[in-house]
C-alpha cells in the first residue's frame, strides 16, 4: 500500500525528516509515536501533500505509484485521508455543503456517479448516527464553534464518507475526554478493513488502548529509531521518550 524509502524532508530550509523507511501493507494499522518535534506531523502533512515541504531525497510509493507529484486533492481522490489534529474552522460553509462537495468531488475523480441530494442525505445520516453527529451539527458552519470532540467526530465522519484506502490520523486523541475518545475510536475501528491501511500518529499510548495497532514505530529526530509490536507502546508509556530524545 505505502512504501517510504530513505525519505528526507526540509521545512523552511531545515531538515525535519532525515531518512524515513516505512512500509505499510493493506489491512495493517501502524502507530507512529514519538516526542514533540520528532517529525510526526511533518510526515502526515507530507503524505497529504501540503505546500512547503521539500523532499530532498528518497521516495514515497502509494499503490505502486509515485505519490509525490500528485496534488493535495488528487491524493484525496486516490484514497489518502488525513484526519487533522486541529481541524480548520470554515465560516460560511455548512458542514453538509462541505461533505456533499467533498464526496461528489472524490466520486467524480474515482469515476463514480455523483450523489443527488436525497441519496446523499440518506448516506450521511447513516454514517453520522454511530458517531453521534446530529443533523443540527451538519447544518452549522464547518467546525465553527464545534467542541474538541465534535471536531474529531466530524473528521471521522468525513473519513467514513470518503472511504480512503490510506488513513492517517494525526493526534486524533488530543483534546478528547475518555467518552469522546471511545466514540472516535469505535468509529475508526469500524473502518478497519483488509483493503485499508491506517497510520495512527500519537504522543500517548492512551489512544492505542482503543485503536490497537499491528505495528508500533518510534520516531525521533526525523528517523524511525525503533519498531515493534503493540507491546512497544506500553513499554514507552512506562519509560517515556527520554532514551530516544537524548
Amino acid at each position: 500500500m505505502l512504501e517510504i524509502k530513505n525519505l528526507h524532508v526540509k521545512v523552511g530550509g531545515k531538515e525535519i525528516l532525515q531518512g524515513i523507511d516505512l512500509t505499510v501493507n493493506a489491512g495493517e494499522v501502524h502507530a507512529i509515536m514519538g516526542p514533540n518535534g520528532s517529525g510526526k506531523s511533518t510526515l502526515s502533512y507530507l503524505l497529504s501533500g501540503r505546500e512547503g515541504y521539500e523532499v530532498t531525497k528518497g521516495s514515497v510509493t502509494y499503490k505502486g505509484q509515485d505519490l509525490l507529484p500528485l496534488s493535495v486533492d488528487q491524493r484525496a481522490a486516490a484514497g489518502v485521508f488525513l484526519a487533522f489534529q486541529y481541524p480548520i474552522e470554515i465560516p460560511g460553509v455548512t458542514t453538509m455543503t462541505f461533505l456533499k462537495t467533498a464526496l461528489n468531488s472524490v466520486r467524480k475523480a474515482r469515476g463514480e456517479e455523483e450523489l443527488d441530494a436525497p441519496r446523499f442525505l440518506k448516506l450521511v445520516r447513516e454514517k453520522a448516527k454511530p458517531l453521534n453527529v446530529a443533523d443540527d451539527m451538519l447544518k452549522r458552519a464547518l467546525n465553527v464553534g464545534f467542541s474538541g470532540g465534535e471536531k474529531k467526530r466530524a473528521e471521522i465522519l468525513q473519513m467514513s464518507l470518503l472511504e480512503p484506502t490510506l488513513a492517517i490520523l494525526d493526534e486524533t486523541d488530543s483534546g478528547l475526554d475518555i467518552d469522546a475518545l471511545k466514540v472516535v475510536a469505535d468509529g475508526v475501528n469500524a473502518l478497519r478493513s483488509p483493503e485499508r491501511a491506517m497510520i495512527v500518529i500519537t504522543h500517548y499510548q492512551r489512544l492505542l488502548d482503543y485503536i490497537v495497532p499491528d505495528v508500533v514505530h518510534v520516531l525521533s529526530k526525523g528517523k524511525i529509531v525503533r519498531t515493534g509490536g503493540k507491546e512497544l507502546a506500553g513499554e514507552l508509556e512506562r519509560t517515556g521518550y527520554a532514551e530516544f530524545a537524548a
Partner: peptide, 26 residues
C-alpha cells in the same frame, strides 16, 4: 485562508472549487 484551502483540498475538492467555496462563503 491557506489553511482552509488546504483543508478543503485534502478532502478531494479541487483548488478552483475550494477557492469558489471560500469566496462564496465570504
Amino acid at each position: 485562508n491557506r489553511e482552509a484551502l488546504f483543508y478543503l483540498r485534502s478532502r478531494g475538492i479541487d483548488e478552483q472549487s475550494a477557492r469558489q467555496l471560500l469566496i462564496s462563503a465570504f
